[in-house]
Simulated scan of single mutants.
Amino acid sequence: MMFMKSIFALAAFATAVYAQSVTIAAPVEGTSVTAGQNFTVDIARPNTLSPSQEVAVVIGLVSCSEAPFNGNCASFDVSQIFGTILYNGPYTPTLHNGPSPDFIDFYQNFTLTVPSWFTPGSASLNVAHVSLIGAGPFPDLEVKNITLNVVAA
């Protein structure tokens, strides 16, 4: 009986954490961005019934063309190498209706600039999201990333 309670508690914990998870809603994977130009990053999270408090996001950009990655963005752990920090600060998403009446989420847009000196080619756009979850609450850190294509100005 104790084993079943432990499994249930673990499943509830995993569900609560997953429900707080953010996504990089924009730009989409493979988007081209220009060095020296602005682009918008949309960080979204679903509406949830479990209590949570948003703390911050950090958005970084790292070139996949340089050693030790040699053009392969999937070959490194973005939680260990985050790249050039484009934003580090509060995450205060607001409630918006999604593409259908049943889909409602929270999101915040960030207008960022690709550094003019950034190496053209594949780059990993990385997002670290920090929140406090539950009645306790407990801290949660998650890292998401997508690959972009940086083009020279």
Rank of each mutant, 00 (worst) to 15 (best):
N72W: 07
F69E: 02
N126L: 00
P101T: 05
S52P: 02
V57M: 02
F138W: 08
P120I: 06
P137L: 02
C64N: 02
P101A: 05
Q108V: 00
R45A: 10
T147R: 07
F69C: 01
S122D: 09
D140C: 10
G30S: 03
E54F: 07
V127S: 02
L125Q: 01
T94A: 10
I7D: 04
H96G: 02
V114S: 07
D105C: 12
V58R: 15
P139K: 04
T119R: 12
W117S: 14
G30M: 06
V143R: 00
G98T: 01
D140A: 13
A25F: 09
A153K: 12
Y107N: 15
T92V: 11
P101D: 02
V58K: 15
T119F: 05
P120R: 06
C64K: 04
M2T: 13
F76L: 03
L132S: 08
N97S: 10
L148D: 00
S63A: 01
V150F: 03
V62R: 14
S116R: 06
P90R: 13
Y107A: 07
S75C: 04
T119A: 08
S79M: 05
A35P: 04
D105F: 14
V78W: 05
Q20V: 14
P93F: 01
V57S: 06
V151A: 09
A56K: 10
F110V: 00
T111E: 10
F110Y: 13
Y91P: 00
A14C: 12
S116D: 11
P93D: 06
Y18A: 15
V151H: 02
F82V: 15
P90W: 04
N70Y: 15
A56P: 03
I7T: 08
S65H: 05
A123I: 01
I133M: 07
G136S: 15
A11Q: 09
S122E: 07
W117F: 11
N149F: 07
A25L: 13
N126H: 01
A35K: 07
V114T: 09
V41C: 03
S122K: 13
G121M: 04
